[in-house]
């Protein structure tokens, strides 16, 4: 039976014929948020483990990237708003049911925290650094004594931030591709992996890179496992989700997803990392760049494809 659907009198910008209300800003933000969460998580983790000396890049240098990534991400988010002069409305209320409200408040906590963390390492990393004002000096000195507590807070908030980048999408049941609870953990693991890739790229210490590469391999393994699960779940679900999965299994996103995200962004860098661990000399920036690129493409594909999927009636 053939079925045709006409909608007369409707050609609303960004809604018809396909929803396209979120553009490049959202996936870019999801990528930067995940990356920041990844760096913060490992900086916190190795501080709690007392490995500041062995993992110097992870704990001291890489966190400099966090405020940069967060501020850029927040700016992208701001550009996405269509009624931007009212953005402060986010902070006049807390809405427990809205992932976006959770995200806004998490960012409100995480961004200053990451800046304070960087500030406490300023003097150690740049001996000639001078805070100029006495009260800044004293505040930074106070937080320097509270690094362990801050590390715990960073780890916890990093997990919330990482999971939130996925839950933001999975909370929309109107978009079948997003409406799966696997998206939260998948985005978290992917974010941790992109964070690690950044640290590995920055690190000059072979031993540190060796440890981080091993962790990253584990994360890539989990990510691949979650992707397989994602599609298994879709194919065993209702018609709308089978249709969503078909966009990636023969549909218009097949090549982008499997070639750029899975092969170039996960399998290939994982192979290079294994070779490096085995003792081959691999330029460190190659797997790192591939992982970052794969993570970015992954978020673009998910946001774009998700908006196309919908309920049929």
């Amino acid at each position: 039976m053939k079925e045709e659907l006409f909608i007369s009198g409707r050609d609303i910008p960004n809604i018809d014929p396909f929803l396209n209300i979120w553009h490049w800003q959202i996936p870019l933000y999801l990528f930067l948020g995940g990356l920041a969460a990844g760096i913060m998580f490992f900086a916190g983790l190795f501080t709690i483990m007392g490995k500041e000396k062995q993992m110097a890049t992870t704990v001291k240098w890489a966190p400099f990237m966090v405020p940069v990534a967060l501020v850029l991400g927040l700016f992208a988010l701001f550009l996405d708003l269509k009624h931007e002069m009212y953005f402060w409305r986010l902070y006049t209320t807390i809405r427990m049911e809205s992932p976006m409200s959770w995200g806004a408040w998490t960012l409100m906590l995480v961004t200053p925290l990451s800046m304070i963390w960087v500030a406490t390492y300023m003097k150690e990393l740049m001996p000639r650094w001078n805070w100029k004002f006495d009260f800044v000096e004293k505040t930074v000195a106070f937080f320097t004594t509270k690094r362990k507590e801050m590390a715990w807070a960073m780890m916890l908030l990093a997990i919330i931030l990482g999971v939130y980048t996925g839950i933001l999408l999975s909370a929309f049941n109107a978009r079948p591709l997003w409406n799966t609870s696997i998206l939260g953990p998948l985005f978290l693991v992917s974010g941790l992996s992109t964070g690690l890739a950044t640290i590995i790229w920055m690190s000059k210490d072979k031993k540190e890179r060796y440890i981080l590469s091993q962790i990253d391999l584990g994360l890539i393994g989990i990510e691949l496992f979650l992707i397989v699960h994602l599609f298994m779940g879709f194919l065993a679900a209702s018609a709308v989700q089978i249709e969503a999965a078909e966009l990636f299994l023969g549909g218009q996103f097949t090549v982008t997803f499997w070639v750029f995200v899975v092969i170039l962004g996960l399998v290939f860098p994982a192979t290079l990392e294994i070779l490096e661990i085995k003792g081959f000399h691999i330029p460190i920036w190659i797997p790192a760049l591939l992982i970052l690129f794969g993570g970015l493409v992954f978020r673009f594909v998910m946001v774009e494809a998700g908006q196309i999927t919908r309920y049929l009636y």
Partner: peptide
């Protein structure tokens, strides 16, 4: 009160 984030349109 609307900031134009688009979440409701997606939902």
């Amino acid at each position: 009160e609307c900031i134009g984030c688009g979440a409701c349109i997606q939902s």
